[in-house]
Computed example of a mutant assay.
Amino acid sequence: MGKFTVSIPAGPIWNDEDGKEKGPIVAAAHLGEFDGNWRTVVPNEMSTVDVILNSEPTGSSEYTLDVLAGPIWNQEDAEKKCPVVCASYGGKWNGQWKTVVSGKMSVCGCTFKF
């Protein structure tokens, strides 16, 4: 199984001790492992942490969650957007979507294995 590293926003991180505390929290939320690296990208506002992810999520537990996807106009549009949106969160699209703010925001149903 392939692994890759991504930088994920984590809010402000003030120092290495703070990074070591927040990094594993962010990694766990994304079904990954904190690699120990973080960086400030906007001083006093935003830092990122580096998280190692598996290219193909596995596990015996599943959970489905709706994730923000921007506007989706119809089923055909959902079929283009939702697989990409779910993959960006480490999941797979389950075929479900809905508009939550007309003309502005929809969500895709994503299934996560862990």
Rank of each mutant, 00 (worst) to 15 (best):
D16G: 11
G90E: 07
G59M: 10
K22A: 11
K22G: 02
E79T: 11
C86K: 07
G59N: 06
P43R: 07
W38C: 13
A27V: 12
F34G: 04
N74F: 08
W93F: 07
Y89P: 01
G23R: 11
G70Q: 06
T58M: 09
V6K: 12
K98R: 15
A29H: 11
N44I: 08
P71E: 12
F4Y: 15
W14P: 00
D18L: 10
D50Y: 14
V42P: 04
G36D: 08
V6C: 04
Q75T: 07
S106K: 02
G91D: 00
S102V: 04
V67D: 03
V49Q: 12
K98F: 03
T99D: 05
K113S: 14
A28G: 14
L31S: 11
K20F: 03
G11C: 09
W14N: 03
I52H: 01
G109F: 01
L31W: 13
L53I: 13
A10H: 07
V51T: 06
W97F: 10
E45L: 12
N44H: 11
K113C: 01
V49S: 12
K20S: 01
A87Y: 03
K81N: 03
V42H: 10
T99L: 00
P12V: 00
G23P: 04
E76I: 05
G2F: 06
Y63L: 12
A10R: 05
D18F: 10
V84D: 11
S106Y: 07
C82W: 07
I52N: 13
D50W: 13
I25P: 00
N37Q: 13
E33C: 06
M46H: 01
K3C: 11
V100K: 04
S7A: 14
V6A: 14
T111Q: 06
I72Q: 07
V26H: 05
C82F: 04
F4M: 00
K104A: 08
D50E: 15
L65Q: 13
I8E: 03
S60N: 15
G2K: 10
G23E: 01
S7H: 06
A87F: 04
V100W: 12
E17A: 14
A27W: 09
